[in-house]
Amino acid sequence: MTLRRHLTSWLFLSPLLVVLIPFFVLPFIVVLTASFFDSDGFGGLLPTFTLVNYANLFTSSLTLNLYLATLKFTVLTWFFSLILGFLVAYFLAFHVRNPLLGIGLFLLCTVPFWTSNIIRMISWIPLLGKEGLINMALLKLGLIHEPLEILLFSSVAVVIAYVHQLTIFMIVPIFNSMARIDKRVVEAALDAGASRLDIMRLIVIPMSKSGIALGSIFVVSIVMGDFFVVKVMSGGGSASVVGAFYEDISVLQYPSAAASAVVLTVALMVLIGLILRTVDIRREITR
């Protein structure tokens, strides 16, 4: 009887597997395989077994720079989106007293998520550009005399675009955890003489841990896997691991691109694995 139960579960899951195996497992195996192949220099693959792609990858100083650049964007984006997302979620969960208003404000934050990311990124151009609104305003105010070039097509622009896109991924899970905090716990702490800082440090942050972890997973994996924002918003000035991967692909350097992709994916999985160790997200979601 229990066997039948397991089989039923697997039957219900089979459609999921029918998608995930050919479109996640197999493609990854393909990339992994290609990373051990040799290139014939004309875009063809020579089915041999060689570690030369990995050797090139690990000996090239370019690799290190790429990873450092990607890591820089990941850490900056993660940091700013966490701070901003946490504050916004905290405001919604603890300071908005009218629940209807709370839901309204929450929706207000989530609506842009349903619209195109690319468009949202492009929309910074008329604001941050050399003749953009911000420069114009600063010039008019006399705060600057020359337009700031650093606003658009720079690392600053990349981070702004990322934070703009991804803070929502922090707000939703953190808000979810915070909404579950029994407000009476906070009251009890106040009655016991806890300061606002104590409450934040001893109650709110520990109890929002799962939301923070979930949000971090989304933000880290999206930034590390992205190349589009870096390419457009840095104006070609910055590179990223996936960006370089894409360049390799466009010049048909499949094996070296594949090796880089494998290393990136493994690094990403390790990072996500570390985050997952701090929280049982399956239990958190189904709770």
């Binding site: 996640f24 493609p27 994996s221 590390m224 896997g225 996936v242 990136l264």
Partner: peptide, 8 residues
């Protein structure tokens, strides 16, 4: 969910 989309 988290694997780099371009790689997949």
């Amino acid at each position: 969910l988290v694997a780099p989309g371009l790689v997949l």
